[in-house]
Amino acid sequence: MNAEPTVQHALLLSVGLFALGALGVFLRRNIITILMCIELMLNAANLAFVAFSNHLGTREGQILVFFVMTVAAAEAAVGLAIVIALHRGKDTLDVDAFSVLKW
């Protein structure tokens, strides 16, 4: 068996992290933990970009990771501001409590 890390091993790690992030979004009911699971999924995508960039010998993937990181920072800032606004209205962070948009 070949024990050297290949691009497939990094991609498998990325798939595992993405599935764990998705599972966390399903399982957890705290809105901040759900936001953290979304960050986990973004990181899994970043890992896939870096693995492909390393294998193909091009820098485009890493430049894309740079932009994904800035978008993730903007997303975290706006998302946490929304969380603070929601907490002010309902005094809870349980996602089941925020159902005003439900028909």
């Binding site: 498998l12 993405f18 896939a48 492909f52």
Partner: peptide, 23 residues
């Protein structure tokens, strides 16, 4: 989640990438 991992994993593992190039 397991189904999602299997789907993405199958797609990524079947990709024909060719030999690694220096970066």
């Amino acid at each position: 989640a397991v189904l999602l991992a299997l789907q993405i994993g199958t797609v990524l593992m079947r990709a024909r990438l060719g030999p690694a190039r220096p970066l």
